[in-house]
Design a protein around this nucleic acid. Structure first.
Length: 673
RNA sequence: GCCGACGUGGCGCAAUUGGCAGCGCACCUGUCUUGUAAACAGGGGGUUGGGGGUUCGAGUCCCCCCGUCGGCUCCA
């Protein structure tokens, strides 16, 4: 720079310092190569940002979430440049950073193939090697429109920027392209000063493409609706991942591989737990004996806990006449999600005229209408409340074909569903108890890391009065706060009939799953005209609380398979003990021990196959049985048995009674081993 | 529902430009059986998801349907 301006004072990470005028944010942090951008007066800026008198500046490195997001956003740009380099006719959509990576949407005539991804990665590497700099340029709307005349989607974003700022931010990722303030284009400049590429973008970006190193990878392609609406055309999306270092990327890819190994669909086949026969239909599972044992154990334990907590057990059929779902409102609100009706009992004469009107029956999508009928079956007294009705209720939902997914998104499932009818005075206390109950039970299934989400009213879709919503929302919030767990707000996420709390659980490898939901409902008691007689003799309307702990038994089952990677704790393991004789001669000795275990209702098998000893160990190991009991001459002559555990460790010469005790204790205490 | 990829014995996979459907595990049979992740030998098992078409000939190419996978939209 030719003109030397006078010094200015800036505040660097809290410390005042005098620097030469014309100093950039990057100049301050030049020695730290992991600095990607700077925070200047609270806003993220490029390192090339010129500092002004009084600016508060701090470095944002690749070790921060924000720094990584910038890196990923820049990686998205490099991808887009590569795409347009290979296919100049590709039109740009949006390309934001996301969790663990980034994506960019393109309008291309021919969708990307896996081979295209290879070619794109190569092109990206060339761009990165060129060390192109990202240079910010402020443009007017008009100039941008002119420059981006060939980019219809970008032009649409420019149009959205001004008046409808809300519409922009409501689309995930769009706000990285155009922000609220001035419009900017980022140019990618080669070392010789030539402009290689540019994109409408709010920034900030890494200083040069070099920064991306080679810790990035294109993962997959998919279609995505423009601006997230199925009414819009679909663009082709390329997903990628990018990290601060190769090692971090490797860790990430390893995590993905680990998740894949745990995939319940894969383990379900390997461990013979369940299947989805084509003959039955998409999203409809059958549980095999080994899966059946696990499921039965889960359900049995849940029943006991519900019994202890004052629930009463009810049963309802799987289908119902249409009238019920008219009353409940399901046909009004959720007909799309229901299986189409069966027409029965219609009779016609020879000419085809209807001589007897038929009936429409629907498969039930939810249990609540049935429980409301049970409530209404006779007059109810306030003395009966809270009335807690519980059912493992099978429900059927016509999920769209593209969303069906293993056990986690099915068309037929069993909910551990309860509906609790309370007086207005009881809501608060009941919600609090309920939350404790839910968390305690989930913990017994081996989950111990939770947070809560409070879904509040969707202003476009709700029933009930402002007052009742406010009251119920407050009651839920208080129960949530009392639990001591983290609470995340989900504004507008509630169903139309009332606010809800959902319990999110993190599994063994840190993924979160939506588990239990607790919902307050003002709507159904109204629709079904539910009443109880209060102490003063008046008739009052109860409030209803919906709650499911597992959500669906199938889904929870799938979660547990993944959480435990198929190695269930002894109380849930389909086979709890496998007896392995060192040689055939010891079969009988093991059978005697097995009889004693069976007397204690322990699920034990003896491997009497013709396999050799090492093969039997291997087979047992692969089946993930928690306890292998091995017996040879040493054991038999000592009246003992040897344990081999899943981790390969060993405990030899354990007296039989002690061995049985160890197994019994492990099962009863529901611990993992 | 939309876009794309895929569908070969129970499972995992192979099969050149369209040219004999194969391998490993599992299963069955036999011989074997003494200490911690695979003894040996033999055998059975597939209308290549279903239907239609092109062709002398289709696992392979085309069309329709079903299903699975990855996303998008949705998820009471």
């Amino acid at each position: 720079m030719s003109l030397q301006s006078s010094d200015i004072t800036v505040v660097i990470a809290g410390t005042k310092r005098s620097v030469a005028g014309g100093t950039t944010a990057g100049d301050l942090f030049a020695e730290d190569k992991s600095t990607v951008v700077a925070r200047v007066n609270g806003e993220l800026r490029d390192l090339a940002h010129l500092l002004a008198e009084g600016d508060a500046v701090e470095a944002v490195g690749l070790d921060t979430d924000e720094g990584l997001a910038v890196l990923r956003h820049s990686a998205a740009h490099v991808l887009a440049q590569a795409v347009q380099q290979i296919n100049p006719k590709a039109k740009l959509g949006i390309g934001p950073p996301i969790r663990d990576g980034f994506y960019y949407d393109f309008d291309v005539e021919v969708p990307f193939t896996p081979e295209d991804l290879k070619a794109l990665e190569n092109a990206m590497q060339k761009i990165i090697n060129e060390g192109q700099t990202f240079v910010r340029r402020v443009v007017t709307d008009e100039a941008a429109r002119l420059e981006l005349a060939d980019e219809p989607y970008k032009c649409e974003l420019i149009g959205l920027k001004g008046g409808a700022a809300e519409a922009v931010t409501s689309v995930e990722g769009a706000d990285v392209e155009v922000g609220a303030g001035e419009l900017t284009i980022y140019d990618n400049i080669r070392r010789d000063g030539e402009r290689a590429w540019g994109d409408l973008c709010r920034g900030p970006h890494v200083p040069t493409t070099k920064m991306l190193g080679n810790a990035y990878k294109l993962m997959r392609t998919a279609a995505a609706y423009w601006r997230g609406s199925e009414k819009n055309p679909q663009l082709q999306r390329v997903y990628g991942t990018a990290w601060a270092s190769k090692d971090e990327m490797k860790d990430y890819l390893d995590r993905l591989a680990e998740a894949e190994k745990r995939d319940h669909r894969k383990l379900g086949v390997e461990l013979d737990l369940f299947s989805f026969p084509d003959e039955i239909g998409s999203g409809l599972a059958v549980f095999h004996p080994k899966g059946g044992v696990i499921r039965k154990t889960m359900e049995d334990y849940s029943r006991i806990r519900h019994e202890e907590s004052g629930y009463e057990f009810v049963y309802s059929p799987h289908i119902s006449k249409r009238n019920l779902f008219d009353t409940s409102g399901h046909l009004q609100w959720f007909a799309d999600g229901m299986y189409p009706p069966m027409h029965v009992d219609e009779e016609c004469d020879a000419e085809g005229n209807v001589t007897r009107k038929g009936q429409e029956y629907y498969l039930k999508p939810m249990n609540c209408p049935f429980h409301c009928l049970i409530f209404r079956a006779r007059g109810r007294s306030y003395r009966e409340l809270p009335l807690r009705l519980f059912e493992f209720g099978s429900v059927y939902r016509y999920e769209k074909s593209g969303v069906v997914h293993g056990l986690t998104r099915v068309r037929g499932m069993t909910q551990d569903d309860a509906h609790i009818y309370v007086t207005a005075d009881q809501v608060q206390a009941e919600l609090k108890d309920l939350l404790t109950f839910v968390i305690d039970l989930l913990k017994d299934y081996g989950l111990d890391d939770f947070y809560l989400e409070l879904s509040t009213r969707n202003e476009d879709k709700y029933v009930g009065t402002d007052e009742s919503w406010a009251k119920a929302t407050e009651a839920l919030r208080e129960a949530a706060t009392d639990s001591g767990l983290d609470l995340v707000d989900d504004p507008g996420g509630a169903a139309f009939y009332g606010p809800k709390i959902s319990v999110q659980a993190r599994d063994a490898i840190g993924r979160t799953w939506q588990m239990s939901t607790i919902q307050v409902d003002f709507n159904l008691p109204e629709r079904f005209g539910l009443e109880y007689q209060a102490a003063d003799g008046s008739r009052q309307r109860p409030i209803m609380i919906h709650r499911a702990l597992f959500g669906s038994v199938e889904r929870f089952f799938g979660l547990l398979v993944e959480h435990y990677a198929g190695a269930f704790p002894p109380w849930l393991a389909p086979v709890q003990v496998i007896g392995i004789p060192v040689a055939e001669e010891f079969n009988d000795y093991l059978f005697e021990i097995a009889e004693r275990l069976k007397a204690k209702r322990i699920r034990v098998e003896i491997d009497t196959s013709a396999d050799r000893f090492p093969k039997k160990i291997r087979t047992a190991q692969k089946s993930k049985v928690p306890f292998m009991l091995i017996a040879g001459e040493d054991d038999r002559s000592a009246g003992a048995v040897s344990f081999r555990y899943r981790d390969g460790s060993q405990k030899n010469g354990v007296p039989i009674a002690e061995a049985i005790e160890e197994i019994v204790v492990a099962i009863e205490s529901r611990v993992q081993v």
